[in-house]
């Protein structure tokens, strides 16, 4: 019964699937899917980017993180929030407590608070335990100021995009005029006004105007030459840190744990081999205690009609 019902159910599911396959196949041949510019090879994979934090032994380059933070502060933070990071976290970039306090105190946006005398909404200067205040009061305000496009929070940007840090670097350096070949192939795909062509962005046209426009847009205290590419790299490195400030601890702990496990596993293997070497001796009783001999004796005795022989166990 189970098999008959099963057979029918199997036939039904497989049948409907093969029918779908057939119908789809015919449909696909009749009207092939339309191609879009993204699919036609105009969407590019991020350029390779190597950061000090890459790989299992990777550590942050603190100078670079400080430069990246400077770019966030002077360029990105005008529109993008960094909600998950607190000023106190900047200590990890090598800033002293006093420097962190000064950075918080002089931050361009103040922290929303309440006027202690009247209870009305007010703002106050940030302190190290505050998270970075958002440039806009809320999402509506952010959209209103950016022709309805919401500048995303940057805290997790390198983890929230498939391409990670290389994507951030490529996107920031990828602004360019729309290629003529694209317009020739897809005349309707012209970048709409107010948007910017960027071959690394999912649909090729991004609301964000090019943020890093010229070499020397910021000036680095450590003497690094602030080319657009360098600035994009530094801010990408900074965003790797904001997305995962515990990366160094993770790498260091990971190496220790794996080394420990490696030794422990080798020992476990030796111990296993060594215990199994005893297998034969432990479980193969010889002579009259051998279960097979006991069974034989029992059968023989019962055939001969003798009472009280060993009971055949097992079998």
């Amino acid at each position: 019964m189970v098999r008959i019902i099963g057979f029918l159910v199997g036939l039904a599911f497989s049948g409907v699937l093969l029918l779908s396959l057939l119908i789809n196949g015919v449909g696909a041949i009749k009207e092939p899917a339309e191609k879009t510019a993204e699919k036609a090879g105009f969407l590019l994979e991020p350029k390779p980017l190597h950061l000090a934090s890459d790989g299992p032994f990777g550590k942050f380059d603190r100078q670079q993180l400080q430069r990246g933070f400077q770019i966030y502060k002077e360029v990105c933070s005008a529109c993008h929030s960094l909600k998950l990071v607190a000023f106190r976290d900047l200590r990890q970039l090598g800033y002293t407590e006093a420097e962190v306090k000064a950075i918080a105190n002089q931050w361009q946006t103040e922290v929303p608070s309440i006027n202690p005398d009247t209870g009305e909404p007010a703002t106050r200067k940030a302190i190290p335990s505050d998270h970075f205040p958002s440039p806009y009061a809320n999402e509506t305000a952010a959209r209103a100021a950016n022709s309805n496009a919401l500048p995303p929070d940057l805290s997790l940007m390198t983890k929230a995009r498939e391409g990670g840090a290389p994507y951030v670097h490529s996107l920031l350096t990828g602004f360019q005029p729309q290629p003529a070949a694209l317009l020739k192939q897809f005349p309707d795909a012209k970048t709409p006004p107010g948007l910017y062509y960027n071959p690394y962005f999912a649909n090729l046209n991004i609301h964000m105007p090019p943020p890093l426009v010229s070499d020397g847009q910021v000036s680095f205290a450590d003497g690094t030459k602030p080319t657009v590419d360098q600035m994009a790299k530094d801010v990408a490195a900074f965003l790797v840190w904001t997305a995962e400030p515990k990366l160094e601890a993770r790498h260091a702990t990971g190496i220790t744990v794996l080394l420990f496990l490696l030794v422990a596993t080798v020992l476990a293997y030796l111990s296993y081999k060594n215990i199994w070497a005893e297998a034969k001796r432990v479980v193969a009783p010889k002579g009259p205690l051998d279960p097979e001999n006991r069974a034989r004796r029992a059968t023989a005795m019962s055939e001969a009609g003798i009472e009280g022989g060993p009971k055949p166990d097992g079998a």
Partner: peptide, 10 residues
């Protein structure tokens, strides 16, 4: 000794 070492590691 190996068995003891393995168990100690665990």
């Amino acid at each position: 000794f190996i068995n003891v070492a393995a168990i100690s590691f665990a």
